Simulated assay, not measured.
Amino acid sequence: MQTSRHRRVAALSLAAALTVALSGCGQAPWDGLDAGGTSSATPTAKATITPIVNDLATGSTRHELTAGDAALTVDYSSSLNMGDWTAEANKPISFSLSAALGTDDGQGVYLSKVSIIPAVSGPTGALDAPATFVDQSSLPTGYVVKAPYSYGQTFVLPAVDSTATSVTLSFTFELLIQTTPTSSTFAKQTASDQLTVAIVP
């Protein structure tokens, strides 16, 4: 009888000791699991940074284009420091164009029209943009652009939306190429190009 009582007391003491030991070990391994046995911890989202393209990061750039048999060299630059290309500033963009023919028998190459369509981008997408720039030659054939001659122009982008992050300029160059050196007939060729410039916050 007394032995049975001693055994009961010993069992109760052991149960109490286990309870104290478990309560002092911190969070149990099964804490934080939902009913399905999986962890309920929420993963931390990582922020992604999208770099902004700036074709004029060094102040100028050269693009090589083709228009039929004509090879075009276009040099772009800005007299405004890239650090000053802010949304509210007037932003000049200058470019010069010259052409060379693959099969050159002495034909003339002329630029009849150039147009630039600006597109403004912000953190959430497209923003309102300035109107299209156009230079239409008043000469019958256009401006002579065959090397050593070239066409040069500067357009000024006005203020844009204060949240703008970049401006992309889409250029279209329309050429007239003389079919023979003495001909009064011309072939029309078109070349397109794009230039993206970052806007300083």
Rank of each mutant, 00 (worst) to 15 (best):
Q2W: 06
R5V: 07
R5D: 09
H6N: 14
R8Y: 08
A11D: 05
A11L: 10
A11T: 04
L12P: 00
L12D: 09
S13A: 14
L18G: 11
L22H: 13
Q27C: 04
Q27A: 14
Q27P: 10
P29W: 07
P29C: 05
P29E: 02
D31F: 08
G32L: 14
L33K: 13
D34K: 14
D34C: 12
G36H: 14
G36T: 11
S40C: 14
S40N: 14
A41Y: 10
T42Y: 02
T42S: 14
P43A: 13
T44Q: 11
A45V: 15
I49Y: 11
T50G: 06
T50Y: 13
P51K: 13
I52A: 11
I52H: 11
N54G: 03
L56S: 12
L56M: 08
A57D: 13
G59F: 08
T61V: 15
E64Q: 08
E64W: 02
E64L: 07
E64F: 03
L65T: 01
T66H: 09
D69Q: 10
L72Q: 05
T73R: 15
V74E: 01
V74S: 06
D75T: 15
Y76K: 08
S79Y: 06
M82G: 14
G83F: 04
D84F: 13
W85P: 00
E88Q: 10
N90L: 07
K91M: 07
F95Y: 15
S96A: 13
L97Q: 05
S98W: 01
Q107E: 15
G108T: 00
V109C: 02
Y110F: 11
S112I: 01
V114S: 04
V114E: 03
S115F: 04
I116M: 04
I117N: 06
I117A: 12
I117M: 07
P118R: 03
V120D: 05
V120Q: 05
S121Q: 09
G122I: 02
P123Y: 02
P130M: 01
P130Y: 04
T132I: 06
F133S: 12
V134N: 12
D135E: 09
S137F: 00
S138F: 03
P140H: 06
T141H: 12
G142P: 04
A147Q: 11
P148L: 01
Y151L: 09
Q153F: 09
T154A: 04
F155A: 08
F155S: 04
V156M: 01
L157D: 12
P158K: 00
A159M: 01
V160L: 10
V160E: 07
S162N: 12
S162L: 07
T163H: 06
A164H: 08
A164N: 07
T165P: 01
S166T: 01
L169T: 05
L169E: 02
L169G: 01
E174Y: 00
L175Y: 00
L175F: 01
L176C: 09
T179G: 04
T180S: 15
P181G: 11
T182D: 13
T182C: 01
S183Y: 01
S183G: 10
F186D: 12
A187T: 14
K188T: 14
K188E: 15
A191Q: 05
D193K: 00
V197Y: 03
V197K: 06
I199W: 11
V200K: 11
P201S: 14
